[in-house]
Simulated assay, not measured.
Amino acid sequence: MSQKIYFDESGFTGNNLLHPTQNYFAYASVATDDDEAKALVDRITKKYNIQGGELKGANLVKFSKGRKAITEVLDAFDGRIKISISDKKFALAGKIHEYIFEPCYSDISSLFYGIGFHRFIANVLYMEFIARGAGAEDLFAEFEGLMRDSTRPDLETIFSSSAVAQHSDTIRLIREFAQMRHQDIRSELESLADGETGKWVLDLTNTALYTLLANWGTEHDVLTAVCDHSKPLQHNQEMFNGMVGNTEKLFSDIGGDRHPITFNLSGPIEFASSHDSHGIQIADAIAAAAVYVFSGARDDAADHWRHIIARQAHYGSVIPDTDELRSQFRPQLNALVLQHLHQRATDGISLTDGMSQAIADLVRSLKFSPFHMA
């Protein structure tokens, strides 16, 4: 028997991950059925006299009465919730690795993922953005603009706006590497330019939904996904349609962590309006609560929600991990790898030939002579 999972989001800004007031994106899911969801929504809307008889999370979090309603939702479905939440600026930093670095060594990308180079780039850029701003902020804005208009002809001078007096050495290395490898980046962007995937390339919805479904698939053999209408999802159904009727359970071990990557859908994703779907209303309230908590709210409701959400908001979430930069070995290794990639790009030699041995040599040298990062 198929398990229905309802999905909805909060904080959607599409390709605009630098939105000045919407810093977080949450995609929430809840396992329930139509009858249970309707009964709960009807009871809560009557109890709290919620206008329109519909749960709208963005409105509920603004008022004490609405937050009490969300508390009842979270308590009722605790243990049947999965949430993916992303810090948008950190997600954008991760996209910089995905579209600036990875195209340059795509044939051996698993080698770099294995040492956490993608995490290093994302975390160090995010910290540059938050701590110093100068250079990093311009780099982020220019990258986002590039991804919105991938046809620009001047990739040879990409990130020139980040060449300011206050820039860090890391920003300089990334900027110069991108300029020297602009042909690889151009080829990657051209592959996106004509399709709907490129139109929503920075949006976080598809990845969040896929990750949530994969994790639900470890608990239920067959899933029926019901989502609120979403342009990014409706434009890109291929990877979800490929899971219809799939019974193979596969996992990925990239980066040293084990993650499910398949699931079994009973049919194509179903789209419904929140007005017509009580399950989507519940998911909407949960997503709004997650954004409210992660945005730093401090009140009785947020304190109560924080413990529930923390247990159920780690499914594909894209959140800064400062421990990635605090540990001794990994950030040192990846700082050296960045320098090594920059040097190879400067010399005009292959970024892939002998790279496995080069990284092994860097590991060996670090064990004998570690250094302190600034």
Rank of each mutant, 00 (worst) to 15 (best):
K88S: 07
E190G: 00
L223R: 07
S317A: 02
N23E: 14
L17G: 01
L74K: 07
R330Y: 08
F177D: 02
T21N: 07
A313P: 02
L362C: 10
L213T: 06
S84D: 01
S109T: 11
A374Q: 13
Q339K: 15
L55F: 03
L265Y: 06
C227Y: 09
L209N: 09
A288I: 05
A37G: 04
I349T: 15
Q332T: 10
E324Y: 12
V293P: 00
A360M: 10
I359G: 04
E176R: 08
A287S: 11
H220F: 15
R258S: 08
T13K: 13
L202N: 09
R326W: 10
A76T: 15
F117T: 00
D347L: 12
E270M: 12
A58F: 06
A225M: 09
E9L: 06
L55A: 07
S161R: 13
T207Q: 09
M180A: 07
Q281I: 03
I5R: 06
A297H: 10
R306K: 15
V226E: 02
E176T: 11
T151N: 14
F90A: 03
S273Y: 08
L336V: 02
P20K: 13
I70S: 11
D8I: 03
N49R: 13
A214E: 00
N246Q: 12
A93D: 02
D78W: 02
L351N: 12
S252Y: 04
S168T: 15
D33S: 12
G348V: 07
A58Y: 04
D253I: 06
S277N: 11
T211W: 00
Y113A: 03
R306L: 04
I158Q: 01
A272N: 10
A26I: 14
G52V: 04
N236P: 03
R258C: 07
A360I: 07
F329L: 14
I269S: 05
I174M: 10
D107T: 15
Y315I: 11
V363N: 13
I171N: 02
N241P: 02
E98Y: 05
L55C: 04
R152V: 12
S274P: 06
K68W: 04
R132Y: 14
G66Y: 10
V73H: 02
S10N: 06
Q3E: 07
T151P: 01
I85R: 01
G316F: 00
L74G: 00
D257W: 10
L146F: 01
K89R: 15
G94H: 02
G116W: 00
T21R: 12
D35C: 01
F240V: 09
A165E: 15
E72R: 08
K82E: 04
S109K: 15
G217T: 08
A39E: 13
H97S: 06
I96S: 00
G11H: 11
H307S: 14
A134K: 15
F143I: 08
Q343S: 10
R181T: 12
A93V: 03
C227L: 14
D253F: 09
A91I: 09
E137M: 09
L204G: 08
S273R: 09
V164M: 04
K367S: 12
F63M: 08
T211L: 05
M127I: 05
N236G: 02
W216F: 05
A313Q: 05
Y48C: 03
G267A: 15
M243E: 13
F117C: 04
G354Q: 09
H259K: 15
K82I: 08
N236V: 06
P320S: 08
I130M: 13
H118C: 02
G296I: 12
G195L: 10
G116M: 02
E270T: 12
